[in-house]
Design a protein around this nucleic acid. Sequence first.
RNA 1: GUGGUUGUGGCGAAGUGGUUAACGCACCGGAUUGUGGCUCCGGCACUCGGGGGUUCAAGUCCCCUCAUCCACCCCA
Length: 425
Amino acid sequence: MSIQRPKGTQDLLPGYIEKWQYLEEVIRKVCFEYGYEEIRTPVFESTELFKRGVGETTDIVNKEMYTFLDKGERSMTLRPEGTASVCRAYVENKLYGTQQPVKLYYVGPMFRYERPQTGRFRQFHQFGAEVLGADKPVVDAEVITLVWDLYQRLGLTGLEVHINSVGCPSCRPLHRESLQSFLDQRRTDLCRDCQDRFDRNPMRILDCKNPSCQTLTHGAPTTLDHLCEDCASHFTQLQELLEAAGVAYKVNSRLVRGLDYYRRTAFEVLVEEIGAQSAICGGGRYDGLVEEIGGPSTPGIGFAMGMERVLAAIEVQKKFPELKPAQFAMVIALGDKAQQRGFSILSELRKSGVPASIDLVGRSLKAQLKAADRVNAHYALILGQDELDRGRVVIRNLRLGEQSEVPVSEIVSVISDKYREGARV
RNA sequence: GUGGUUGUGGCGAAGUGGUUAACGCACCGGAUUGUGGCUCCGGCACUCGGGGGUUCAAGUCCCCUCAUCCACCCCA
């Protein structure tokens, strides 16, 4: 058997790539309007960055990273997410020395070694945004609003925006303690994973999907019950701002995101209809991350959106606009002499910005018209020996099935005029 | 890492052990000689994912393997 693409990767072919281009276009537009600028960082980084930035206890670092040694024996890793890289770039390029906050976004491939399934790939794509250097609740609100706004523009419905506050280093220990004492006597009834989590990261038990863990944690103290004054007011203000912006959110006190760095605000956007992997966006505040990576103490918040999943949602909800690429004109030349003339006409058309093509494989007139039809061309410019002798070109309107003749010298201006008029028929 | 699903021509899809492996779509060509989208006709598979086995005989049964898809874990 011939070589095939690696498991969990995909070839994005013409016919579908237009949908990606459309999504990227909307993303860039929204980001521009919100004043976010693009950043591009390497697709691989020192392994250490992700160990520190994502967290040693996470599944991503423990079992999902594409790690390799380069020829200089340095351990490198294909980026599993974007936030760590953006923070690294912020520190390395001393963006903390510029006007704060810094508002950035990125679009690109991420890599995670996992078993593929619906909405999950080994190479997938994320759109993400990060705001570094601002800690007020408005920032959180703006970021969530951006996400919401983007989904609105894409026409998506039935979305659920879940928000929560996981507290900060000063209030989280209190929650941890009270949660542990709540669960202590039923500890052995928890699933195996949660028994591990009990000491390591008990908060995650709240988020466990195992039904028995869910009943056991029913009525358990949540982080919201233990927020310190600052965190509580931050969360309240966030909600007020989201209401002001018209974002339909739900407080979900069991929402605990997987990455270690989250602080205070955590949020997630879910859609049904796209399979078991229903989260199309996840994010939160990470005020300690930049420092963890060796930079100055800097607050930060951001999110990552799975583009494949967003596209799947747009697809099932049938919200893609008409995306039909069309060649405006097809030059149909018969014979070598006509081909030369036709080729020169074609090149003039292209110079004036008209999308146009010519037969490249020596097809018959009939076959060329068929081909013109297939690329949705508006006009066929027919040039044979006959026309050549008389210095004229046949213009056939393929939509109407009507045709007329025009002198060769005028053909380019006639067609480009029609193109500019945006001729629909 | 665990569980299940599927694997026939470019795509979709028949085929319930036995001569030349249906059909649809797509593609290419043609229907009195230079005009498309409809219709009609014709062309287009020597590994039925790969390997091994059972049998007189296997796409059809068994084993192994690879790939795929779906689900769990976790995540976007």
